Simulated assay, not measured.
Amino acid sequence: MEFCDECGSMMQTQGDKWVCTKCDFEKLRDSAKEAAMVTTQSQEASEVIESQGGTEGLPTTDANCPNCENDTAYWYMQQIRSADESETRFFVCTECEHKWREDDH
């Protein structure tokens, strides 16, 4: 990946040149420098971490399910807005597996 010297945008290859998609700045490609670049295509998938999903291992709390009135739910926190916003707490009913957010009413 190459970034424009003029505006900082990501550049694309066109033949023997790098061309900025924003300001049209051009510079010649350097094959030695490009050989040292790491791309997602050249990375090996030697370590794959799979999500277990589901509710296994989640903590439980007292919370009334709006779907079935059960009083116990699994809960977890997730960042769904920008980084300067607080996380949102999600609940999953232990009986019917209905999912809701803390701020849902």
Rank of each mutant, 00 (worst) to 15 (best):
M10W: 10
P59Y: 05
D30E: 13
R89T: 11
Q12R: 15
D104Q: 05
L28Y: 13
S42W: 01
I80T: 07
Y76K: 03
R81V: 11
A36M: 15
T13C: 08
D16K: 06
A32S: 12
A36Q: 14
R101Q: 05
G8F: 01
K99N: 05
E26C: 03
D5F: 10
E26N: 04
A45H: 12
M10D: 05
Q14T: 13
C65S: 04
W18H: 00
S46C: 06
T40E: 08
C20D: 00
M1R: 08
D24E: 14
Q79T: 00
Q41A: 13
K33A: 13
A45Y: 01
H98A: 04
M77K: 13
F25T: 12
G15Q: 06
G15I: 12
W75K: 08
K17M: 14
C23T: 10
V38K: 13
E50K: 12
D24G: 07
E97T: 13
A32R: 10
D103P: 04
K17N: 11
S42F: 03
W75S: 02
N67K: 15
S82Y: 06
S9L: 10
M77G: 05
Q52A: 11
P59Q: 10
H105P: 15
W100Y: 05
E56F: 10
Q41I: 09
D16R: 09
R89Q: 08
G57K: 02
W18N: 00
K99D: 05
M37Y: 10
A83Y: 01
G15R: 09
E95G: 03
R81G: 12
F90G: 09
K33I: 06
W75C: 02
A35Y: 09
T60W: 01
L58F: 13
E34Y: 07
L28M: 10
I49A: 06
T13N: 15
Q79W: 04
G8H: 02
E87K: 04
T61Q: 08
P59F: 04
T72L: 06
D84Q: 10
M37K: 09
L58P: 08
N67Y: 15
C93A: 01
Q78H: 11
Q78M: 12
C7F: 02
I80Y: 03
T55F: 07
I80M: 05
E56Y: 14
C23N: 01
C7A: 04
Q78T: 07
P59V: 03
D5H: 14
E2Y: 05
A36L: 15
K33Q: 06
S42T: 13
E34N: 04
T60C: 00
T72C: 02
T55L: 03
A63V: 09
D103F: 13
K17S: 09
T13W: 10
M1Q: 11
S86Q: 14
C7E: 06
M77N: 15
D84N: 08
G53W: 02
D84T: 08
D103M: 04
R89D: 00
R101L: 00
V92G: 00
K99S: 04
S51H: 02
E47G: 03
F25L: 04
R29K: 07
A36Y: 11
K17W: 11
S31E: 15
Q41D: 07
R89M: 08
E6T: 15
A63H: 06
F90K: 07
S46A: 09
T55N: 12
T72Y: 04
T94G: 02
E50V: 09
A73I: 05
R101F: 00
E44K: 15
L58Q: 12
E102K: 08
E102H: 08
T88A: 02
A73T: 03
Q41V: 12
